[in-house]
Amino acid sequence: MNILKQELKMGRKSLIVWCASLVGTLAIFMMMYPMISDQAATFEKVFESFPPEFRKALGLTTTNLGDVLGYYSFAFLYILLAGAVQAMNIGVSVLSAEVREKTGDFLFVKPVKRSKIITQKILAMLIELGIINVVICLANYIILSLVSKDAFDMKLYLLLTGSLLFIQLFFAAMGLAVSVFLRRIRTVLPISMGVVFLFYIIFLLNQTLEDPKLAWISPFGYFDLSYISEHVAYQSKFIAAWFVLNAIFVFFTYKLFTKKDLPSI
């Protein structure tokens, strides 16, 4: 329990900054919605002049920018990207922090099993991700209610917003697995950004090439906002794949970290 409290205390400032940043970014996007909705036809014509591949990459093929949730799904893609970086950052750093901050010798000689340490740190990570998703869900709802003159589909809103939690949990679990494979991690952000943007590029390629194989590689494709907006549902096959991959990441984290030789400080 002390480990859990310490992890939450250490991540408090970062959590506040990320919450404010993500909510603020979406607020800036949504402030432009009234102007865009009034001139939706003009914007649609402009986007139609773009190459089809470019429109697919931005998710503008089925998006109705004149509808508040249509515009929200377009803007929320960038929140997903930033949120994925944050989650990967937490996942990579939560176990590797002891080595980077030279506290590993102190923690791992205590009469506490490594499996318990991992569990406490993962719980702290889940609590942080849960908090940020609750804050974003409530804040985004308020923002949409302020900028929209009409009521919107609450189910679709929850599905679109809930995709952030799934994306973040995926990258957080992957970050855990990455951290146990690497012996020393000096800086976390380059790894997090590199992995997230690699998967995002794969997602963009799939949007343009429409290759079924690529759709299975990137988690951004599992929760394609255009598909969710059109069908008001997630794809069950990708939900199943998401559960399997997350279980594999967590299994290997426990398996490898409990036997890993940690470098002495």
Rank of each mutant, 00 (worst) to 15 (best):
K5C: 01
L8I: 01
S14C: 08
A20M: 08
L26R: 10
I36G: 10
T42L: 15
F50N: 04
F54E: 13
K56N: 14
G59V: 10
T62W: 04
N64R: 04
V68N: 05
Y71G: 03
Y71K: 13
L77C: 03
I79F: 05
I79G: 09
L80D: 01
A82S: 14
A82N: 12
A82P: 09
I90F: 11
K102I: 12
G104D: 07
K116Q: 10
I117Q: 05
I117Y: 05
L123M: 15
M125F: 09
I132N: 05
V134A: 07
L138D: 03
A139H: 05
I143V: 00
I143Y: 10
S145N: 05
S148M: 06
D150A: 11
D150R: 14
A151V: 11
M154G: 00
K155E: 02
L159C: 00
F166T: 11
G175R: 00
A177C: 10
R183N: 15
L189S: 09
I191L: 07
M193T: 08
N206T: 08
E210V: 15
Y222F: 15
F223A: 05
L225Q: 09
Y227M: 04
Y227G: 03
S229K: 04
F238L: 03
A240G: 05
A240R: 10
A241T: 04
L245A: 13
F249S: 09
L256Y: 08
L256H: 14
F257D: 02
K259N: 12
K260I: 06
K260R: 14
L262S: 09
P263K: 14
I265Y: 06
I265M: 13
